[in-house]
Amino acid sequence: MDISITEYKRCDVVKANGRIDSSTAPQLEEALNSIIEAGRYKIVFDMSDVTFMSSKGWWVLIETQKKCKRYKRGEIILVKVNPNIRDSLNLVGMGSYFQMFDDLTAAVGSF
């Protein structure tokens, strides 16, 4: 899995590809934490190339959402979530904790 972070004025865009499971979730966690530790709490996660995500990956997103939303200082927004991933997130009720967009520009523009 490769992860890139692009810093924009309004927010940071994180992009990952491939499979997010117990072996790769720690990499995603590290990338997201590096943004939060830099005092930036508005994050767009571009999931257009993420093909698989297990519950370990979701927990990384949940923990990030908790940190971002604290003191209403920001949020993590998900973009282009694969329908299989979205269905399984919704199945355990976790989809409701995230705004999901189909368009990256619209997601960035929402901040």
């Binding site: 499971d21 117990s22 698989f52 297990s54 370990k56």
Partner: peptide
Amino acid sequence: ELAVDEACS
């Protein structure tokens, strides 16, 4: 794939 991944994890 998801069920097996969760089980193995």
